[in-house]
């Protein structure tokens, strides 16, 4: 394809994305906004593929559009009949915000333009390529995520953990849906094993090709979403105690691996070169399970039934009702 055709393609794709984002943000009808947002996620996945970021294309489709979309659509059900507030004319504060937005647009363009003029465009790419051989994996994105900048990923798992702790403490889960129609349950039964296999494949392939723990975790979470839509109340999650262990598994294994190499006279998370690949795979397996559990709980929207049954000693159970109203007097 000639150069010009690519430019045309880029213009159309970028224009569509911005247009879709505009409508999604501006619309007063929440349902429309959410659906457009999911569409926006898919367009972004195409852009990531176009800009040669296949790992991101997978992650965007699975997490950015998939799981986030599922969360938003489930939230829509809670807000039936609610629309975004009517926009009452062109008030002063609106004008101020618009003015600020235009100023920010210009400033950011100016800063980035200057940055591009200043930079040689190499940045860290060469450094990663040089040390890739020592990382234990071949996919450079996985090498950055789980070796060079593994600490970021550890804290990222902590962010997921924090969010799910918040979701669990805010309130009880949504009531389960009634069992779906025959076609839906049939489809679910059919898809679940396929998705589990795909998740395993994505996890395994992440070492040398696009994929990895986050994409695989999102895929497993999709299984939970499907099960829940098909009428399975617990969405495939095991009992309370096991679910708690699953939640902490990712961070726990990550930290334990990091500390064990530290006790072998290395820095925290400094894997020995010859077993780096194995350690990364172990961490990724644990992280996949934790991410899937966390996203599944997020989709339930709160505490599953019986989540806090073992939190207090028996004589205190009577005060349960008071507990659900919170601790602040």
């Amino acid at each position: 394809m000639s150069e010009l055709l690519w430019v045309l393609f880029d213009l159309v794709l970028a224009g569509l994305t911005v247009g879709l984002a505009w409508v999604a943000v501006a619309t007063r009808e929440l349902r429309r906004g959410v659906l457009l947002f999911v569409g926006l996620g898919l367009l972004l996945a195409v852009i990531w593929a176009r800009l040669r970021a296949p790992d991101l294309a997978l992650a965007e489709a699975a997490i950015g559009a998939g799981i986030a979309g599922a969360l938003l659509i489930a939230a829509l059900r809670d807000e039936i009949g609610v629309s975004a507030e009517p926009e009452d004319g062109y008030t002063a504060s609106r004008r101020l915000v618009d003015l600020g937005a235009i100023g920010l647009l210009l400033a950011l363009s100016w800063g980035l333009l200057d940055a591009f003029l200043l930079s040689d465009g190499v940045r860290l790419a060469e450094g990663v390529a040089e040390r890739l051989g020592e990382s234990g994996v071949i996919n450079p994105v996985t090498a950055v995520l789980l070796n060079f900048r593994a600490y970021d990923t550890l804290l990222e798992l902590a962010v997921v953990f924090a969010a799910v702790l918040g979701v669990l403490s805010v309130g009880p889960a949504r009531p389960a849906l009634e069992a779906g129609s025959l076609v839906l349950t049939g489809l679910v039964r059919w898809l679940v094993p396929i998705l589990v296999v795909v998740a395993g494949y994505l996890l395994w392939v992440g070492a040398h090709a696009p994929g990895g723990a986050f994409q695989a975790g999102a895929m497993l979470a999709a299984v939970a979403v499907l099960l829940r839509l098909g009428g399975v109340a617990h969405a495939g999650l095991p009992g309370t105690a096991a679910t708690r262990w699953l939640l902490v598994l990712g961070i726990g294994v990550f930290v334990i691996v990091g500390l064990s190499v530290m006790f072998a006279d290395r820095a925290f998370l400094q894997y020995p070169g010859d077993i780096a690949g194995v350690l990364i795979l172990v961490i990724e397996i644990a992280a996949t399970l934790s991410i899937a559990t966390a996203l599944a709980l997020a989709y339930l929207g709160g505490r599953p039934v019986g989540w806090e049954a073992d939190c207090d000693s028996p004589q205190h159970r009577v005060n349960r009702g008071a507990a659900d109203r919170g601790g602040d007097a």
Binding site: L56, V141, A143, A163
Partner: peptide, 20 residues
């Protein structure tokens, strides 16, 4: 690959915040 890894982190952080 560095920005790709950062964005992957960002996407997961964003979905967590959305869930909360």
């Amino acid at each position: 690959p560095v920005p790709h890894a950062l964005v992957l982190t960002g996407i997961v952080v964003a979905v967590s915040a959305t869930a909360l």
